[in-house]
Nucleic acid binder design. Structure first.
Lengths: 362, 362
DNA sequence: GTTGGCACTCTCTTTCTTCGAGTGCTAATA
DNA sequence: TATTAGCACTCGAAGAAAGAGAGTGCCAAC
């Protein structure tokens, strides 16, 4: 069922005005906005119909109108003009991105912090569960009681750890272990590094000191950690800027939910390609705590077939357009730097595809 | 100037009752608490004097009394019974600590998170500015375009990074560089790794590819980062539990201050020995944003002459006794695991020394 | 020095009133 | 038929007034 152009126009004005002011929008204000050439009375009629259709609602009888989640959805899908950042802004953003990029872990933290700063909403960084494996193991002999384990993972990240032992080892033993590990432990998952394999390696290395176990434990732990979906959140406090979170209890609920880190995407909503931005409005979110908030998520290529997500949480009255644009650029920038190889074509970083979640019942 | 025992007793009751209830404490309530055998009228007289002395104040004429910062200070210094955690509780805490300990960086994050959980206040982890130097540099050759830099720092932490080059290098060159770096770059500070030294090394290594610069840059960056005092905060949202932060603006102010990460200790307040807990009450804090909050900080030995701090922030109406006890145990546990060597004597972990900040004017 | 008694003060809560924005409806108009 | 002007009505927000209650300070008695 489609609605008239004028209704769409009015809906867009209501949404934008409400996003700006956080106050219910009245017919008069719409008429005065000068974007329509009809009187407030006409607009009142239209508004009444938009309410009947479910796009708007009234907090109470004699208040202005406020968009419903369905209204926002319509706005996001069809009405809003996809903002593109100006060249200047894009460059500024990329510049800030450049400063931050060192190592994957630190990066995603830094980027979500950046996202939060830019949008003035709490931001979350998610890495979806992946299958990182070992690419290489090195053991560096420091002294008789000390060595360093260096693991290179398939994501091209490197993890290292210093190990101090109560017993002494010699370099030759380390050499042997290193060779064995590189032979047996590469390319397999953490769960495949089972006691049997470890024991076999131990035997083969003639290791009576338990080094094998130490190294394997570190490998398993590192892989498990790298594979686990992780979430980090920054800028929770920015929620308190929003009038809808002036109630400390409400704010607290959402903030602890976010701090808990268990953000779940609506089912079957695997993130799409880089630059694509998904918007989850209010009840579209699965988590109870998010039912009256919105989440905007962009996906980026973290290299090695891994995708990362970076998102922003806010009230349903969010500046979807601006946030989506910013996230899109951030994600593109991240992809370009972390991604597998093929640099996206120039200009791509500013493209913006907005998808709605798959299951949009409700 | 000393005050009578009874006044002290009353002050203690007021503080504790206020900590518990967050409401001004009246004379009647004190009398009824049964800890004193005199009437409310007598207590009223005493209260009036305590107000005159500056230990208590009245929000308004006909309200109960509330401790002033000076009152809290007196309480912390002399009145409160130093809580000791029960054996059971201590063990529980240590158990949780055990799970968390992997690597220094991750650890302090995890521990401050733990501190926040245990105390239900926001927690901060600080590493004071130290002078970490390089202890060792290794270069691992991966393939012609790729190598790994492994730095071992004086704190016995290890940092590594994968470097991809647009040009190819050979193993022999890496060997040469590695030797040179280990000869010239160990034990010096980041600022001493100046262009002159780098250039000299570059020359000596006959490096026309700029590898030297890359490695040096990573070394400098790593050291700078390791040396910089860093702060991380967890559980900001717990502030919203506290009635004194029901005002979202107030909460927001403090939370953004904390998120900013620039927590500064009162001047000359270098943290003391492990197990020692310092309490900064309201205006004793230097930061404007903390003038009506309290900070409790424990210091731990992070190994290699480095001290770390772990602290908790809350309203002045804080459960000093309980928080101090918990932090003390946490700090002791951390020291035991990270610290240089000499394990603290058994039982030490439960000892609690509370120091006031040096400059206590105001 | 301690106690009971009592008038007083001040905030918090509740209730009531007022104000105004915005609506829905009707009748007139293009 | 769509639009517009006009107007009575509704409902929340904000302010004022009144009442309740907790706690005090002080006085006189013990």
């Amino acid at each position: 069922m489609s609605i008239s152009e004028r209704k769409k126009k009015i809906l867009a004005i209501v949404v934008e005005e409400y996003i700006r002011s956080a106050e219910p929008v009245g017919s008069k204000a719409i008429a005065q906005s000068g974007q329509l050439k009809c009187s407030s009375a006409t607009i009142r009629n239209e508004l009444a119909e938009l309410v009947a259709l479910g796009y708007l609602e009234q907090p109470h009888t004699s208040a202005g109108r406020v968009p419903t989640p369905m209204g926002y959805r319509m706005y996001v899908n069809e009405l809003m003009d996809r903002q593109r950042l100006g060249i200047q802004e894009t460059e500024e953003l990329n510049r800030r991105l450049n400063q931050k990029l060192q190592e994957l872990d630190a990066t995603i933290g830094a980027v979500s912090r950046l996202a939060s700063q830019l949008t003035n909403y709490p931001a979350l960084a998610l890495t979806s569960s992946t299958s990182v494996t070992l690419k290489r193991i090195d053991l560096i002999y420091v002294d008789a009681n000390t060595f360093i384990i260096v693991l290179m993972l398939s994501g091209n990240t490197v993890k290292s750890k210093l190990v101090k032992l109560p017993v002494s080892v010699d370099q030759e033993m380390m050499q042997r272990l290193s060779t064995l590990f590189n032979a047996s432990f590469l390319g397999i998952s953490a769960s495949e590094m089972n006691p049997v394999l470890i024991h076999a390696t131990e035997q083969a290395a003639d290791d009576s000191l338990g080094l094998t176990a130490v190294i394997a434990a570190f490998a398993i732990e590192t892989l498990t950690e790298a594979n686990a979906p992780s979430a980090s959140v920054f800028g929770e406090n920015r929620l308190l800027n929003q009038p809808e979170f002036r109630d400390p209890d409400k704010a607290h609920r959402l903030m602890s939910y976010l701090a808990g880190g268990g953000y779940i995407l609506p089912p079957s909503d695997t993130p799409g390609q880089t630059g694509e931005v998904k918007v989850f409005i209010g009840p579209e979110n699965v988590a109870e705590e998010l039912k009256d908030s919105s989440v905007i998520i962009a996906s980026y290529d973290a290299g090695d077939n891994t995708r990362g997500l970076i998102g922003v949480v806010g009230p349903t009255r969010m500046d979807y357009s601006a946030v989506a644009a910013k996230l899109s650029v951030l994600a593109a920038g991240l992809s370009r730097r972390l991604g597998a190889g093929e640099a996206p074509p120039e200009g791509m970083h500013n493209k913006l595809i907005i998808k709605e979640p798959e299951d949009k019942h409700e």
